[in-house]
């Protein structure tokens, strides 16, 4: 179970003359089995924070550790393995490999992990059913709606039960029934399997599921509270 520590994270992007502080001295601790929502206005640094925790980008300053392992100091190969085996990603947009069918997309990561074919198939069919896509397994991404694509991405992220799921606006394209269904699924995984969730969202429905709600603005954490309603 991961214990994630973010200490004094800074990241600035330069665009021409403008300097954008995407992360501005962010310090954060995430306990194992937590269910966290990250909200804040567009451009406030949510995606950047998720990317940093997933080891996709380099920090200007600060440190991130997962279970005592310094993510910001890992080299590319071990980072890739960390993501492959322990972290599930759902990106904000453009998630899927266009030439693979829904099922193959879900199986893809498992194949790289070396999961045997039969097990891959069983797990992928099961998870697609869970996200409400049974019957659509053999469609290519281009033949799926935005919301369906998003659900395939979610299925791919959680299929091998990673310790940590980083989801960037997973419900952006979903109707409220599907969104609720998805969040129920997340909660089930969180409660029964101890998967830690860090979800960035603008969606009130999603925030309701969060145990802890973090608000960001201009690269800073402006509030961090435990929700009691759950």
């Amino acid at each position: 179970m991961p214990n994630i520590l973010c200490n004094d994270l800074c990241k600035t992007y330069r665009q021409g003359d403008a300097v954008i502080k995407a992360l501005d001295h962010v310090t954060l601790e995430i306990e194992p089995g937590d269910f966290i929502c990250l909200s804040g206005p567009s451009g406030s640094g949510k995606t950047t924070l998720l990317n940093m925790i997933g080891g996709l980008d380099e920090l200007d300053r600060g440190e991130i550790s997962i279970d005592g392992q310094r993510v910001d100091q890992l080299s590319k190969g071990p980072l890739a393995d960390l993501r492959l085996h322990h972290i599930g990603f759902v990106f904000q947009a453009y998630n899927l490999i266009p030439v693979l069918s829904a099922r193959e997309n879900v199986e893809f990561v498992m194949q790289v992990q070396g999961v045997p074919a039969r097990e891959r198939r069983r797990k992928s069919m099961a998870i697609l059913k869970e996200v409400g896509l049974d019957g659509l397994e053999d469609r290519r991404p281009a033949q799926l709606s935005g919301g369906q694509q998003q659900r395939v991405a979610v299925a791919r992220a959680i299929v091998s039960q990673p310790k940590l799921v980083l989801a960037d606006e997973p419900t952006a394209n979903l109707d409220s029934v599907s969104a609720t269904h998805l969040m129920e699924l997340f909660r089930e995984l969180n409660q029964n399997h101890g998967v830690t969730f860090l979800i960035s969202t603008h969606d009130e429905r999603v925030m309701r599921y969060a145990r802890r709600l973090i608000r960001m603005q201009d690269g800073k954490v402006i509030s961090d509270e435990i929700q009691k309603s759950v």
Partner: peptide
């Protein structure tokens, strides 16, 4: 996207 998933 594929590299982000942990593929080398």
């Amino acid at each position: 996207v594929i590299t982000a998933l942990g593929v080398r």
